[in-house]
Amino acid sequence: MNLLLADLHKFVGYSGGIEHVLSRMAFAMAERGFTVSVVMADEKEGEPFYPFPDSCHFYNLFHMAGMKPVHMSALGKGLREVTRLFSQEGARDRNYKMLAAAAPQLEKVLEREKPNVIVSFREPTGRLLLEGLSTDIPVISMLHNDPDEIFAHSPANEKRALEKSAAVQALMPSFISKAKKYLRHDHLVYIPNAVNIPDLTADPGQDRRTYTITNVGRITGRTKRQHLLVEAFSLLAKDFPDWQVELWGDTYDKAYVATIKRLISKNGLEDRVHLRGTTKDMAPVWQHTDIFAFPSHHEGFPLALTEAMGVGIPAIGYKSCPAVNELIHDGENGFLVDDGAGPLAEALRKLMESPALRRKMGQNAQESMKPFAPHVVWDEWDRLIQEVGKKIELRFE
């Protein structure tokens, strides 16, 4: 079966969670015998941050061989951002219209690869396939976030397009009912992300010279909110001189990164709070991590959180954060706290004071991640893709 993975989004040097999932799925499905191709879209030319199988045909829609490069005009981008001030829906419509300029290139990919099934990783991608091209190829649309976050400001045409999907996948059981508020669709499926756990077990209870609180995620204010961790640590730093904080993640949000740096300097934490950037090798990070702190506002199925828990590190998140509040079981594998720096600091203190508690919660965290083992999740995807592909074959017989 020919499988096309489609994520019409930037990828050159970009280490986003969705891109990580796409890379993993490409390898997993190729190992299961699928002929896998991937299409993405970046105005830059270069290699993806995450790798793909050697057998995989990879296309950058904006730089297709033999076709004119596609560029989103500066005027179009400016109008999109002005529109965003008044209407997020309008901004998403403008962004889609710029993306739709690459429809001929996408048609060329479909002609070459002849996919039996397409997996769409973002809503605008699904819209271009199902509305812009009106393809008869079955499309499985993935929802990589809380549906309330995805669809609260989604254009009506985008929702109508996704309703044409052969199946819609949600990352948490609770997201199914949320998605039904926005989409009239009878094939909504729960499949979580696969937790790709390194071959190691952390020991957050061990004696160290320096102890580490880690956060992994894009350094950005609306979603990840690392400033709350810096503020929480500032309330504890004097009491715990042998502790530090490491922030790992892409720093493309320059304004927010500057805010974080000012906050670190204001609290005199330059030697205690470190922005580490990105890495493709997380094993050393997990080995020296004692607590994973995750002050996100909203999530779909956070890979960094689940990987940290999967190697045996206790985690702290907010009760109000979707997905996080289902993965962390308060008092068992970590702590769920009320929003704000103060409650986060209180939970950090409990774990910082007790190596035994860190070790116990870490062991519970590792056990709680077993249902998300890669072979379990990719088997579910294999079954869904086969099911969707067979239905379309029967329809045309």
Rank of each mutant, 00 (worst) to 15 (best):
G217M: 04
L228A: 09
M172H: 06
N193V: 04
N145Y: 10
L228T: 05
A237W: 04
T214Y: 01
L133S: 05
A194K: 13
E163V: 05
L133W: 08
A170K: 08
A152K: 14
Y190A: 03
Q244P: 00
K224M: 06
L143T: 13
M172G: 02
N145C: 15
P138I: 04
V216E: 01
H144R: 12
L200S: 10
P241V: 00
A152I: 09
L247C: 07
L171G: 03
T210D: 15
P192S: 14
A161I: 08
M172F: 06
D136N: 15
P173T: 05
T223I: 11
R209S: 14
L235R: 15
H227A: 09
A232G: 01
I150R: 01
M142I: 15
I176D: 02
A167V: 01
D136C: 09
V195A: 15
R160A: 12
L229T: 00
I213R: 08
G205P: 05
Q206K: 15
N193R: 14
W248T: 02
V216N: 04
I191Y: 02
A232Y: 00
V189D: 07
D239A: 08
H153N: 14
L143Q: 11
G221A: 13
V168I: 14
S234F: 05
F240E: 02
D148P: 03
D203V: 03
G217H: 07
D203E: 14
L143W: 02
I197L: 11
W248E: 07
I137S: 09
H153T: 12
H227I: 10
A161R: 06
L143N: 14
L236Q: 01
S174E: 12
P155K: 10
T220L: 09
V245M: 02
A179C: 09
